[in-house]
Design a binder for these strands. Sequence first.
DNA 1: ACTTTTTGCGCAATCGGTTGCGTAAATATC
DNA 2: GATATTTACGCAACCGATTGCGCAAAAAGT
Lengths: 347, 347
Amino acid sequence: MSEDREVTIYDIARYLNVSAATVSRGLKNNPMISKNTRKKITEAAKTLGYQSNTFASSLRSRHTHTLGVLVPRLNSHFMSSVLAGMENAANRHGYNLIIAQSLEDVEKEKRNAATMFNKRVDGLLISLSYNTTDIHHLEPFFKRKIPVVFFDRIYPHEESTSVGINNYEAAYNITRHLAEQGCKRIMHLGGNLLRNVYQERLNGYRQALRDHHLPVSKKLYLTSTLSEQAGTEAARYILDLPPGERPDAVFSANDTAAVYCMLALKAAGLRIPDDIAFAGFNNDPISRVIEPNLTTMDYSGDSIGNTAATYLINHLKGISNLYTTDAITLRAEMVIRASSLKKKLRE
Amino acid sequence: MSEDREVTIYDIARYLNVSAATVSRGLKNNPMISKNTRKKITEAAKTLGYQSNTFASSLRSRHTHTLGVLVPRLNSHFMSSVLAGMENAANRHGYNLIIAQSLEDVEKEKRNAATMFNKRVDGLLISLSYNTTDIHHLEPFFKRKIPVVFFDRIYPHEESTSVGINNYEAAYNITRHLAEQGCKRIMHLGGNLLRNVYQERLNGYRQALRDHHLPVSKKLYLTSTLSEQAGTEAARYILDLPPGERPDAVFSANDTAAVYCMLALKAAGLRIPDDIAFAGFNNDPISRVIEPNLTTMDYSGDSIGNTAATYLINHLKGISNLYTTDAITLRAEMVIRASSLKKKLRE
DNA sequence: ACTTTTTGCGCAATCGGTTGCGTAAATATC
DNA sequence: GATATTTACGCAACCGATTGCGCAAAAAGT
């Protein structure tokens, strides 16, 4: 009952007068063992209260059924959805997640990558920190052929796959939407260009402006961390602009900055969308609470997480091959809400 | 360089002409080994590209430096803050987190608890699912003296500690605040009473009503999952009430339900707070975006996570003893915002 | 009845560190 | 200079499961 020793396969073996090898095989339902013996083993395991020791197993079999997940921050709506999706997929396939956050710091990212490696995760799911410039720290994984899947904030690498959305197209479409609403001076709140997602959104935004013969001005482009504070500061920036140079629309690379910018502008008396239209990115819960509701890009963190994890697991199981796939692009959908619908087009 | 074998302590041992035991001790900075040898070992480890194998180590040393975290859902603002806090504390102390979600399902919670046990986590941090009625599934942990810390949704157990806030008091205070604003018919949107947090909030709410000689009516109490939809439905319920029986204030056990209830009521033409005041719980980001801003209970998920993890780790390190502490109660602070400030008291 | 194939299981090495105990050399003690 | 103590390290037995190989018994084939 409450012994202090662990119950091992040897105990089961002794109990049933078979060898530990047989028990080991029996527990894994190896067809090499007769159905009868297998049943006896499973029963004995239950009555003895056997609990398999995962690392004894891992040590020998050289896989851990564990995936490493390395993210910039855990506490954003998007990221927690991603994690939820990953956990779901992993759990469904009998994998576990060991999760760490870099807090946007390369050094911590490196340390975390090292621990993950030492823990011998079967695969790595990673979204890069703000200021990661190279991925030398992932070399150990590549060397040992431990599959790496990038998601959201990706880094092109020939031995790994990335999962995300078409940020260029999404940004292009959302900017075009603003243009079609009659906006002439469309501003962009962007993030760190080291990260593909922000670079691509900027590119899409710019191209859409050019295609609609709208000004691509440095005054209409701000780069920041896209935090609440950054949103508020962007509002300040806009209000300080000479009236003639003020944007009549803002496309923010995330919802947080958009919403806090809106709040500040509203407080200053600007009307949204009539004085200034708004569009965000992420479809964060706050985008459905702010008034007017925020037009945004909806792409499910859940499916990104799910897809990335499932894909990684399929590779591990040999069902698919990660090395032949460069990128998986998920659908992103524009959700048009009141914040970008100019009156003249409404009626 | 790119060999396929792993670099082990034996390789280092051979390289330096010492024994593997010495290498093992040297790598852990065991003072039994001379400083000189230790330095040589660390250097050799670096040049050979040695990476420790965590489970070989865990197998023998019987601890994994890994904490299991079992939560209902990953993707809520509160929970992701908790996780961020835990990850921080764990990382700081050299521990890792393996995280799983029960999706509010006891069965999944049981399965997850079992895997965590099999992975031999050094400790368990758990917040119970919606419909967990007992904690038999945690017995293996108690039996093997693996420390368990409950957080937020706790379960009294003499061999484990819980970390949370004083829900009774918080609910009492927030209800009193509404009463002091002159609200006479205060409604409560509550959660499943199986979970202490909701039971205690209900108790606090009721006691405050009694103390202020306000009606404690079943009509003014709704229990739900506190989801967005539940919030909207609560609004429907309120609107369907005969005008004389309508509440003039709502205290919701979370912000999500409060906000979606507010949105629906506003859409129906009610004015907040004049027709109906509102208070929530959690200080979720949406509470600062909804108009009017929502009065709520602020308690930091981050500190709950941090405290719970730190406490567990200190126990593991022998710094403190978990078995002597029953509960750790963190501070919760009422944040009064416009949603609960009645005009007459404003001026 | 005799060979061939299949089935069911055991032997023993192995995965990569950890650690109690033993011991030789170096240093201290008197 | 002999004994006591300390320092620094090696030996070898683990930790608990996995797995290639071998072998006997049972089943199938002729």
